[in-house]
Nucleic acid binder design. Structure first.
Lengths: 240, 240
DNA sequence: AAAGGCGAACCTTAAATAAAGCTTAAAACA
DNA sequence: TGTTTTAAGCTTTATTTAAGGTTCGCCTTT
């Protein structure tokens, strides 16, 4: 989760940054309106916290520019207490939520969580299907030839990634970042072990299947030596 | 079920809030028109109870603004006795029902139930039935194989959520938001404890049942580790 | 050009560790 | 008073680590 925090009061900005980082967010702080506008156009943040009163550019201008450029990240605006006109104009300009200063950090956190979930709910489709493998995110299950099977959380997310972009090879680093949140503390062996158990479960399901998709069911996830892993490509074509 | 109650008489507002919370609704009270307008734009309530005579903004302005923003929650307006003009203008502005003050709490409840039922056919019918489990929304009771049992508000709402979408796995966050109104001050343990007592009550009821649905009645609500909870799927198919 | 050897990358399994969830009673709330 | 939340110890399950085993590509040798 990558958050841009636009706030000119440096002390406030820093304490928020620290707090958010402790919660596991990646936070970039910008104190200045012009710079914020540019960064927002260039980068695709997951969420922006935007102070409404800023030097050089005010929040409204910035936000309108972003929306014109089709930057659709959720924006949480910070306004002065009781500043009603600004709140309304902010919502008109495309802000998704507002908070009046002063606010508690807990409340900020809650709203950030709510906003990021709201936007991810929309993009996340319910079921994902590639060939004979179907993933039901809502039920948290894989379905192979109609046979259901529950996976453990890490296995599930890993498979989800591979299914999302079949044909793509995912490196260990990419997998670590997307399943574990960071590549930093995850050893290669951890990933290998997870791949291994996932493969076994998939193979078992395919064994029960009437139609034969592959000679060797242990290769539903292919290893590309030195590069990473991907879904077996013959599976993709076959199933469609 | 998340209700916004906009009412400037603080004493009335508080007693209504308490009553509705005892019924298992999550209630947010706002005493002031301006703030109500904003909150209604930002949040997606399931229903709004809106006093028509308010300081700073009147009900009509607020409601018109909401409808312009495509906030389509049902709105129940509260008007002064005999105030016919306001009733008409309110219904024109997009209110779904009205009540004249003074009213009885029971009547308010009845209308809230009617409105929420109307707006989403699935969510709030009088009784809900999934397999052998039947829910009496009005009395806060579960009926299992004809045997009634009263649940506490939190237990009831939680079960209601699971019954509403059987097969779906609900995360702790989702449960917290829908039963407690917000996820951030509810600890995991609170949810676990509620699940635990709910499970025990359900198990006791199933024990008295002649027909056997499950081997182990403590698993009527299944845990999907790392993902959340859902109704036992074998129960669903069996009962239909 | 084939055979053999070597090292890096990868696999597998079980054991150790860590995390998630359960339950009960007691405290706090309303 | 009845309901909800917290706390603590406990159980279950998931994840990581560790160790030894494969496989593959590459380089050397013949």
């Amino acid at each position: 989760m990558w958050i841009l925090l636009v706030e000119d009061e440096k002390q406030l900005a820093n304490s928020l940054k620290r707090g958010l980082e402790e919660e596991g967010y990646v936070v970039e702080v910008i104190h200045d309106g012009e710079e914020a506008e540019l960064e927002g156009i260039v980068n695709d943040y997951d969420l922006v916290v935007l102070d409404w009163r800023l030097p050089k550019r005010d929040g409204k201008e910035i936000l309108e520019r972003w929306r014109k450029e089709e930057r659709n990240f959720p924006v949480l605006m910070l306004t002065a207490m009781g500043d009603l006109d600004h709140k309304i104009s902010g919502l008109d300009a495309g802000a998704d939520d507002y908070m009046s200063k002063p606010f508690s950090f807990e409340e900020l956190l809650a709203r950030i969580r709510a906003l990021s979930r709201r936007s991810s709910d929309i993009t996340h489709s319910e079921t994902k299907k590639v060939g004979p493998i179907e993933l039901d995110t809502r039920k948290h299950k894989v379905i192979i030839c109609g046979i259901e099977r529950t996976l453990r959380p890490k296995e599930f997310t890993l498979l989800e990634i591979l299914l999302n972009e079949p044909e793509t090879v995912f490196s260990k680093t990419q997998i670590a970042e997307r399943v574990w949140g960071s590549a930093y503390y995850v050893s290669d062996n951890t990933i290998e072990a997870t791949i291994s158990t996932l493969r076994q479960k998939l193979a078992e399901s395919f064994d029960e299947c009437e139609k034969v998709y592959l000679d060797d069911h242990s290769h539903i996830i292919e290893t590309i030596r030195g590069a990473g892993y991907r879904l077996n490509s013959s599976l993709i074509k076959e199933g469609e």
